[in-house]
Design a binder for these strands. Structure first.
Length: 467
DNA sequence: CCGAATGATTTCGA
DNA sequence: TCGAAATCATTCGG
């Protein structure tokens, strides 16, 4: 700083005081030896110097260094320096208002904030994608139900890493470039007037340029994050049907826990895991806990709404799980399947109507039950089905009961109602703790996690109902 | 292209 | 906060 100033002063004084009494070290003899008229010679010399400056880049490094030295020692140099100083002053090229305090770019701030919010910039947490994913998977005690994809985390970490390395690169490049330019300017300040202020200013300009590049980096990072986000959000909005296997697993669980189809958090996690494992052939199709919850929510409501429609499915899955149970049950299944209208051609319409009736009746019954407190409270097929299912602990025969009840007439219904009614009155310990509570709701079941394995149900119930 | 199926979201109540 | 219910939006099979 001071040193520069001093040098400049020196140079200036050299011009004014010493005129061309200064002899260069003869590193660069004037092309035209004559030192005739002052102005002409100076012009020539200056032109020569300028030319050399302009062509300095064309030469090799050593050569250039030598030339530079020559130029520095040229006797006309101080004159040129002063001329340049004058020109500079006249053209007002010197620094105008030093408004270095660049106002914090709102856009940059926005980007910074966004990156911070997205966890791209800011403190490193967890340290590594694996840790982050693990933290998201394990520690996520329902805290972030919006995005629990470890995929998302991993991708975000990737973006973050790229961002940081790039940022570092830019910073490094910026520093390098700045020092380079500063050195260059310092060097040049010997041949042309450059105040330290100007160097500062130039540094500021460089920094601004680089920060604009950084902003681009931030912007593209933000874009990447947004794309990532929208991809995952879209993945949810623009849904894809679950794979066959996943649906199968979920259905299996649903129908084997029909008395209480409310999987615990752990169960949901397990199911999600199972599904995503089985689904692994589909690329990024992992199923999350909330998806499992959604599925069960949908399933419950849709099952309840139209049990008949799910009868076949219930049979299928119940059979699937009951295959290992008892031969007697299996035989009964076949038997009743032969009886029940499996083909939805002719039976469908009637069935449907019956369901409508049933559901209406169910609601009515609910109301009447509430008002009358009647113990004869199982008129709907759903209740019936649940009742039977709970009764024998085996979902499959229960389902059959439901089907039969629906497809057959009032006599059967009545008979079964009576049976159930009795049982209900007696409150047989076998089924009382299960979902059935008399008003067709699962919800207020005490959730004893129900019996997972179909225990030996009394086949007599089944055969009795199918008669 | 239509309608059923289905996953996701919203609303509401306890 | 969870679940029921309604609803939206998309997919899929005929």
């Amino acid at each position: 700083m001071m040193e520069e100033q001093a040098r400049m002063m020196q140079a200036l004084s050299g011009v004014t005081l010493a005129g061309h009494s200064v002899q260069g070290g003869m590193g660069l003899p004037p092309p035209h030896g004559h030192e005739g008229t002052d102005g002409d010679g100076r012009k020539q010399d200056i032109g020569d110097i300028l030319h050399q400056i302009m062509t300095i880049t064309d030469q090799s490094l050593d050569e250039a260094q030598a030339k530079k030295h020559g130029l520095n020692c040229h006797r006309m140099k101080p004159a040129l320096f002063s001329v340049l100083c004058e020109i500079k002053e006249k053209t007002g090229l010197s620094i105008r208002g030093a408004q270095e305090e660049d106002p914090p770019d709102p856009q940059l701030m926005r980007l910074d904030n966004m990156l911070l919010a997205e966890g791209v910039s800011g403190p490193e947490k967890g340290g590594g994608s694996a840790a982050a994913a693990a933290a998201a998977a394990a520690a996520g005690g329902g805290a972030d139900n919006s995005i629990e994809h470890s995929d998302y985390r991993a991708k975000l970490t990737q973006i973050r890493q790229i961002y940081h390395t790039e940022l570092e690169k830019y910073e490094q490049a910026c520093n390098e470039f700045t020092t380079h330019v500063m050195n260059l300017l310092r060097e040049q300040s010997r041949t042309r007037p450059i105040s330290p202020k100007e160097i500062e200013r130039m540094v500021g300009i460089i920094h601004r340029k680089f920060s604009s590049i950084q902003m681009q980096l931030k912007q593209s990072t933000c874009e990447a994050v947004m794309i990532l986000r929208s991809r995952f959000l879209d993945a949810r909005r623009k849904r894809r049907n679950f794979s066959k296997q996943a649906t199968e697993i979920l259905n299996e669980y649903f129908y084997s826990h029909l008395s209480n189809p409310y999987p615990s958090e752990e169960a949901k996690e397990e199911l999600a895991k199972k599904c995503s494992i089985t689904v692994s052939q589909g690329v990024g199709t992992s199923i999350t806990v909330s998806q499992v919850s959604n599925w069960f929510g949908n399933k419950r409501i849709r099952y309840k709404k139209n049990i008949g429609k799910f009868q076949e499915e219930a049979n299928l899955y119940a059979a699937k799980t009951a295959v290992t149970a008892t031969h007697a049950v299996a035989a009964a299944i076949q038997n009743s399947q032969a009886n029940s209208p499996t083909t939805p051609n002719s039976g469908f319409q009637m069935k449907d109507e019956e369901f409508q009736l049933d559901s209406a009746e169910s609601k009515n019954s609910l109301l009447t039950n509430m008002f009358t407190g009647s113990s004869f409270n199982l008129p709907s097929s759903g209740d019936m089905f649940l009742g039977m299912q709970s009764l024998n602990g085996d979902p499959y025969p229960g389902a059959q009961v439901g089907a039969n009840v629906q497809s057959q007439g009032d006599t059967i219904r009545h008979a079964i109602s009576q049976t159930i009614g009795y049982s209900d009155g007696i409150r047989h310990p076998l089924y009382s703790p299960h979902g059935l509570n008399g008003n067709g709701g699962w919800h207020d079941a005490p959730t004893p996690s129900s019996v997972t394995s179909p225990n030996e149900g009394p086949g007599s119930v089944h055969s009795e109902t199918s008669n």
